[in-house]
Amino acid sequence: MISPSMEKQLQELLDKQALYELICAYCNAADRHDHDKMRALYHEDAIDDHGHYSKGPAKDFIDKLPQIQAAMEILHHNVTTVNLKLDGDKAEGEVYIIAFHKVREGERSYDMLIGGRYFDKYEKRDGVWKFSYRSIVADWAYPQDPSAVRMDHPMLTGAYIGKPGPVDPSYAFFSLFQRGQR
């Protein structure tokens, strides 16, 4: 028999795990340019604030992603510290990230390493946690122009090479992780 306080703690752990998986799914969707998956992570009426890229309905931001990501040869989001607070079917999160971008503009290619945080609001509707509001906060940026990324280094010989979109080797390797699915 589980006590009511233990049941409450267990539910909080389950909710926090679901939120953590949501946060990680966002990184995967962004890095793989998986816009269907990205759309599934937000409530229909959610707001996303990505600075000059988009500020408003999350669906508008996701609609712009193909254009935003077109120049990004590499996207690599890494979640570090995750602070979550729950209040029933609502929650807030301050999520620290380090995000690497390799950008190509014509013949020019540069790198941008950004340290920042997401300020998130989440809601559990019909038993499913999704973003209701997400805002990016930049704490620091480290540009490298021209790009210092070298995928032809001998240490990488024979390794899978990550790529944006459905050609990423993860889609051929995994059977349980499917494009467009949470």
Results as ranks from 00 to 15, higher is better:
residue 81 T to L: 10
residue 95 V to K: 07
residue 118 Y to R: 10
residue 89 D to G: 01
residue 53 Y to Q: 12
residue 82 V to A: 01
residue 128 V to W: 05
residue 125 R to P: 05
residue 52 H to I: 14
residue 102 K to Q: 11
residue 120 D to N: 12
residue 96 Y to E: 14
residue 118 Y to A: 03
residue 72 M to C: 13
residue 134 R to G: 07
residue 60 D to A: 14
residue 85 K to F: 00
residue 85 K to R: 10
residue 97 I to Y: 13
residue 107 E to F: 08
residue 118 Y to F: 15
residue 108 R to F: 04
residue 134 R to L: 05
residue 55 K to H: 12
residue 127 G to W: 05
residue 89 D to L: 04
residue 88 G to V: 00
residue 95 V to I: 15
residue 82 V to S: 09
residue 53 Y to I: 14
residue 112 M to D: 11
residue 83 N to P: 00
residue 96 Y to F: 11
residue 56 G to Y: 00
residue 131 F to G: 03
residue 84 L to T: 07
residue 82 V to H: 02
residue 129 W to T: 02
residue 61 F to C: 04
residue 86 L to Q: 07
residue 111 D to W: 02
residue 56 G to W: 00
residue 134 R to M: 10
residue 81 T to R: 12
residue 108 R to G: 06
residue 76 H to P: 01
residue 49 D to F: 06
residue 59 K to M: 13
residue 71 A to Q: 13
residue 50 H to D: 08
residue 101 H to R: 10
residue 97 I to N: 13
residue 130 K to A: 09
residue 61 F to T: 06
residue 65 L to D: 08
residue 132 S to T: 07
residue 111 D to F: 01
residue 122 Y to N: 08
residue 107 E to H: 01
residue 131 F to W: 09
residue 115 G to P: 06
residue 125 R to E: 02
residue 116 G to I: 07
residue 72 M to K: 10
residue 99 A to T: 14
residue 104 R to A: 04
residue 81 T to A: 08
residue 59 K to F: 10
residue 120 D to F: 05
residue 61 F to H: 12
residue 113 L to W: 06
residue 123 E to C: 01
residue 97 I to R: 11
residue 88 G to Y: 03
residue 84 L to S: 07
residue 57 P to T: 05
residue 67 Q to R: 15
residue 96 Y to P: 04
residue 84 L to K: 09
residue 120 D to G: 02
residue 52 H to Y: 15
residue 49 D to Y: 05
residue 89 D to V: 06
residue 51 G to P: 00
residue 63 D to K: 06
residue 82 V to D: 04
residue 101 H to T: 04
residue 83 N to T: 07
residue 56 G to L: 01
residue 121 K to P: 10
residue 76 H to W: 13
residue 58 A to V: 07
